[in-house]
């Protein structure tokens, strides 16, 4: 894999107490609680754009893009459902294409342009897909929803760009926007509450409006 990140591995001291403060109310003896001998860890710098805003982070090299968003940038809209690329709850768009943010390290994204659910819209200014999800009740617990919405927005772009899927009948023609195509392309996003039927309706509504606009 090519990696053009210029990692500046600095050994920054994290200001961490070497002994853990121990709560006075603890019921038991705490002699076995000890801090690690060294709190020095290697951090690497990375810069990328998230929702239009340039971000500079110094991260533990093991940090995934998902954890960089959630734990470091406090953008908790992107969800951790499995941390293994099995559920799709962490879907974000990187340079216009959707990925599972749990499956890539933050340091792989130097200079990338990242859009999360927070960047699509806000409660006061909903993206068309967010509004359609509300209208069609295309969610229940809401935990997979940011990933579903990011995927849905990307799926419409993929179909409009002529990218075929497993169910496309003809690779030489542009894929048609229908339930089979939507169902196939959205199948990386699990919704255990089972809102699929409503999600497809929400996506279809937004997609058909997009097509009308294009015409």
């Amino acid at each position: 894999m090519e990696n053009d990140n210029r990692l500046k591995l600095s050994r920054r001291e994290m200001i961490i107490g070497t002994t853990a403060a121990i709560s006075a109310i603890a019921a038991t003896k705490l002699t076995s609680i000890e801090a690690g001998e060294s709190n020095k860890i290697a951090l690497a710098d990375v810069s990328f754009v998230v929702n239009g805003k340039k971000q500079h982070l110094a991260l533990d090299t093991r940090t995934t893009l998902l954890d960089a968003l959630r734990e470091h940038l406090k953008l908790n809209g992107t969800k951790k459902g499995c941390d293994h690329g099995q559920c799709g709850a962490c879907t974000v768009m990187v340079n216009g294409r959707r990925i599972n943010s749990c499956l890539s390290l933050a340091l792989q994204h130097e200079d990338d342009n990242i859009v999360t659910i927070e960047g699509l819209g806000s409660p006061d200014k909903l993206h068309a897909m967010q509004a359609a999800f509300i209208k069609h009740d295309a969610y229940q617990c809401g935990y997979c929803t940011p990933g579903q919405i990011c995927s849905a927005v990307a799926v419409i772009n993929e179909i409009n760009s002529g990218i075929p899927s497993h169910v496309s009948t003809n690779l030489n023609q542009s894929p048609i926007l229908n339930n089979d195509e939507i169902g196939e392309r959205m199948s990386g996003n699990i919704c255990r509450c089972g809102a699929y039927s409503n999600i497809v309706e929400a996506i279809t509504e937004v997609a058909s409006k997009a097509v009308k606009k294009a015409r």
């Binding site: 809209g77 927070e118 806000s122 999800f133 509300i134 009740d137 809401g142 929803t145 940011p146």
Partner: peptide, 20 residues
């Protein structure tokens, strides 16, 4: 429509692990 819809669909609903 669900009254919590705007929060859930924009990633602003705060789940357990996400509280600051």
């Amino acid at each position: 429509d669900r009254i919590d819809g705007p929060l859930k669909t924009t990633g602003r609903a705060t789940y357990a692990y996400e509280h600051q």
